[in-house]
Design a protein around this nucleic acid. Structure first.
Length: 112
DNA sequence: CACCTGACATAAT
DNA sequence: AATTATGCCAGGT
């Protein structure tokens, strides 16, 4: 077994903190978070979430793509984790459209 | 220290 | 409208 849990960096902590701001039943996008953190690169957000050692504890499943697609989960953009992510969002009240995209009304905009 | 990868985004073709 | 190319930031090797 490998207890190789690296300590979260300051940037990762920022991402997690912003994630905590997302209300249940809603979702945000990598780009919006990147802007909120002044990161400028949504890729870094995905990197931080991928390294997220705190699964559902941190609402990392509430982060989707800018085009309101399901996005990825647990380091993958396809597979069982993705279905689980969709199930979690549905369980929280997020509305999915027929094409698999998320209802724009469920998109949290970090307005404040 | 330099290069590569990655749960994206946006623009151009 | 769809696909391709480039940009950006941080972490890992």
């Amino acid at each position: 077994m490998m207890t190789a849990e690296r300590p979260p960096t300051e940037f990762e902590s920022r991402v997690y903190d912003a994630l905590q701001l997302v209300p249940r039943g809603k979702v945000t996008t990598y780009g919006l978070m990147a802007r909120y953190l002044s990161c400028g690169s949504p890729r870094a957000i995905g990197q931080a979430l991928r390294r997220n050692p705190f699964a559902p504890e941190t609402p990392c499943h509430r982060v989707v793509n800018a085009n309101l697609t399901i996005g990825g989960f647990f380091g993958t953009v396809k597979g069982t984790p993705i279905e689980r992510k969709r199930n979690l969002l549905l369980n929280e009240g997020v509305i999915f459209r027929k094409d698999g995209s998320i209802d724009p009304a469920c998109c949290y905009r970090f307005d404040e």
